[in-house]
């Protein structure tokens, strides 16, 4: 029973989605199914919050190594949540000056805006920038001319790396206009537009078919492993 009902729900919801694509009057049903998902995901957010609280509270109470960080996490969590939820420091909308909670939750200058602008923005930008360092170390370690294919890959990488920077213009800028396709930027464009595109399309077709067959398996209840192993 515990397995059957979810499979029926998955099959019905999936079928509605598929059929509604071809049968216009069913579009409303599809939208309802999509709304249900959003509602469920929003409710699950509470479970997520509870999971965070439980995990870090346990670490603190067990005095595990690094429990201080858990404390910091919980304090930050509480502050951000309450500042956002209660719209702390947010002035009311100009149209309704006597209604204190009408303002936008992330109004310029309000505490939540401050947290966003001066904490989240720099922190996430820093994390993203780490990519540059990891790309460098990966290039050093993994880009080896082990066989013929790897040599091809290496050659392509050289052309694109040069063609995508000023070096390409500098090195092959003297090539006459009529041979522009032979300059480094020209070759980069060809590589991206022809070889890359061809490869990407092939991968996309494979992925699309993979999605189709996975969806069919789930719709028909052949693959139930996402609900746990069937045996």
């Amino acid at each position: 029973m515990k397995r059957t009902i979810p499979i029926i729900i998955a099959a019905v919801a999936g079928l509605v989605m598929v059929v509604a694509f071809f049968v216009p009057p069913l579009i409303d049903w599809r939208e309802t199914a999509e709304e249900w998902f959003n509602i469920l995901a929003a409710v699950a957010m509470i479970l997520g919050g509870a999971s965070i609280l439980a995990m870090h509270l346990r670490r603190i109470s067990d005095q595990k190594r690094g429990w201080g960080f858990s404390l910091v996490t919980l304090i930050a969590f509480a502050i951000t949540l309450s500042v956002g939820l209660f719209k702390v420091g947010v002035p009311p909308m100009a149209e309704y000056p006597d209604r204190p909670w009408t303002g936008e939750y992330i109004t310029h200058g309000a505490p939540l805006w401050w947290i966003f602008q001066y904490l989240i923005v720099p922190i996430t930008a820093t994390m993203f920038s780490l990519l540059a360092f990891f790309v460098a170390s990966a290039a050093f370690r993994a880009f080896r001319a082990k066989n013929a294919e790897a040599v091809l890959l290496l050659g392509t990488a050289f052309i694109v790396l040069l063609g995508r920077s000023y070096a390409g213009t500098l090195l092959t800028g003297w090539v006459p206009e009529s041979y522009a396709a032979l300059t480094l930027p020209g070759m980069t464009d060809t590589i991206m537009g022809v070889f890359n595109t061809a490869g990407q399309r092939a991968i996309m077709i494979g992925i699309a078919l993979g999605i189709a067959s996975t969806s069919l398996k789930i719709l028909l209840g052949i693959d139930r492993s996402y609900l746990g192993n069937r045996h």
Partner: peptide, 8 residues
Amino acid sequence: GEEFFAAS
């Protein structure tokens, strides 16, 4: 891509 979907 598709190998990933074939995994299960």
